[in-house]
Design a binder for these strands. Structure first.
Length: 486
RNA sequence: GCUCGGUUCGUCUAGUGGCCUAGGACACCGCCCUCUCACGGCGGGAACAGGGGUUCGACUCCCCUACCGGGUACCA
């Protein structure tokens, strides 16, 4: 196998788990870094849980982040079909080949009796292992059972002695005692292959050079090798990937509510940030770079940088990275992303240039916008007058009253309600009064916003609110300050 | 229980026997900037799971223990 071929084999579950996406991403990056092919295979054997549109969601997500596949159900390829349910008939003949060569055998033991024996063994604290009972069955008896139409499974006949080794590109060579391997089912009683068997056959048929999959399959790798050897097939390279954790002992799961790609997009995370972040969760480039586009990842990726231990998902770092990407957006892009949130906050009609200017450096995730600007559309007219007191700006209720009385008439007469004009007026007034900028600006801002913390300052807020609203809020505040004075 | 694997700041990680007084990033704290909050700039605290070896010298190699995870299905 000279060409690197990797595959991403998701199940159409109706949502794209972030850990799953990362597995696909690594498979994609590895293939691309090696000039190889990346294939998409849909593993839809779990027919019972068929979800409408689930396959399309997979396509859409991969396309959205820019992970294009060279072969797959929709684009075709020479190794199809790429949907597992369409491959159903392919597996049985391979299992039969194994029976012929003695590497597998029919087993007529029923699930019920096996379950019972397993339970009994576990009760005694022992590990249950199939005893190869049916391997030693008379051929005549076997024929009789088959004639009777008794259901049977096909089991792998693993050696009872010796050891089996396999090599993983991340974990190195791992050796296990064959005595610990069980004769697992290859073909179920209903004729369908088990996941592990289907994978071996599919990966071989599709000439997958590097089998990249989750750690949970590490333990079955020895049995895979035994199978490849029994068939006389070339053994692929294995790359087992660690899971993404919610905390030290739990995987990030669907239950966490925000484990899917869509969830993040809906909250206002940028796809570039998501891809960049998950790439770094369990992989590092070997230098201190942290910002990567997809194509930069393709260049930088290598399995040497992949981690041996699970990584805990850190929403704070994702958010930071997202903020970095948001700051790099041009004004138009920013506004396009922010628009739905402007609408939600009732400020869609306001000056988007100013909004962009005050929000872009502050927003880390777009969904934060409504909370940040809630005071623009409507504010709390009964806000605490204590807000007018600020030590650093040297203001209190009295000073504020004075400032508002001084500034209001000038604002009423301001010919043009523009940022420049407001700036000149307010700053000019402060200077003329020999006042700190803050002493003048603080009361103005508080009067307009009714809250201590606002994105942007008095001037920007005044522009956004417009003359009428600005004046009315300031008048109301002045009125209350006078009343408070008594 | 058995078995396989993992273990560096709170988190993601660099580190492959001397370059380590253990580096970076996020988070946190402080200062500067400043009309608030941010942005930005500067600075700070913060880790080799524990114990034995091996070696002139261990974060790096070996063994043991602890903890965490995987596997132990006619699930994937």
């Amino acid at each position: 196998m000279t060409q690197v071929r990797t595959r991403f084999a998701p199940s159409p579950t109706g949502y794209m788990h972030i850990g799953n996406l990362r597995s696909g991403l690594y498979a994609y990056l590895f293939a691309k870094s090696q000039g190889g092919k990346f294939l998409l295979r849909i593993e839809d054997t779990d027919q019972e849980r068929f979800i409408d549109g689930a396959t399309e969601l997979i396509y859409r997500t991969l396309k959205d982040v820019g992970m294009s596949w060279d072969e797959g159900p929709d684009v075709g390829g020479d190794y199809g079909p790429y949907v597992q349910s369409e491959r159903k008939a392919m597996y049985l003949p391979y299992a039969q080949m194994l029976i012929k060569s003695g590497h597998a055998y029919r087993c007529f033991c029923t699930k019920e009796e096996l379950d019972e024996r397993r339970a009994a063994a576990q009760a005694k604290g022992e590990t249950f292992k199939y005893d190869k009972h049916c391997l030693h069955m008379d051929e005549s008896e076997q024929r009789e059972y088959m004639a009777q139409g008794r259901p049977y499974v096909i089991r792998q006949n693993v050696p009872t002695e010796g050891t089996t080794s396999f090599t993983d590109l991340i974990f190195g060579t791992i050796t296990v005692n064959n005595s610990e391997l069980d004769d697992n089912v290859l073909i179920k009683a209903d004729g369908m292959p088990t996941y592990n068997f289907a994978n071996v056959v599919d990966d071989h048929l599709m000439e997958i050079s590097h089998v990249m999959r989750g750690m949970e399959y590490l333990a079955s790798a020895p049995k895979y090798n035994l199978l490849y050897e029994a068939f006389g097939w070339e053994i692929p390279q294995y790359i087992h990937m660690t899971p993404i954790m919610r905390d030290a002992q739990h995987k990030l799961s669907k239950r966490d509510g925000d484990a899917s790609y869509e969830d993040f997009i809906n909250k206002g995370y940028l796809k570039e940030a998501i891809v960049n972040y998950i790439a770094l969760l369990g992989w590092n480039p070997g230098d201190e770079r942290e910002r990567f586009t997809l194509s930069e990842l393709c260049e930088a990726f290598s399995v040497q940088g992949m981690s041996k231990s699970p990584a805990i998902f850190d929403p704070a770092k994702l958010t930071w990275l997202n903020a970095q990407y948001i700051r790099e957006l041009d004004a138009q892009e920013f506004t396009a992303h922010a628009a739905p949130y402007y609408k939600q906050a009732g400020i869609a009609h306001m000056n988007s240039d100013v909004l962009c200017r005050i929000l872009q450096p502050r927003v880390e995730v777009f969904c934060q916008i409504p909370d940040m600007v809630d005071f623009l559309a409507s504010y709390d007219e009964e806000f605490d007058l204590e807000l007018f007191t600020n030590k650093k700006s040297k203001t209190d209720a009295d000073v504020s009253r004075g400032v508002l009385e001084l500034v209001l008439p000038k604002l009423r007469e301001l010919p043009e309600w523009t940022e420049d004009a407001l700036h000149a007026l307010l700053m000019g007034t402060a200077q003329a009064q020999d006042m700190k900028n803050g002493t003048l600006l603080w009361p103005v801002r508080i009067a307009m916003a009714g809250k201590a913390v606002t994105p942007g300052g008095a001037i920007e807020i005044a522009v956004l609110l417009g003359r009428k609203e600005t004046l009315s809020r300031m008048e109301a505040a002045l009125c209350r300050l006078k009343a408070g004075k008594g």
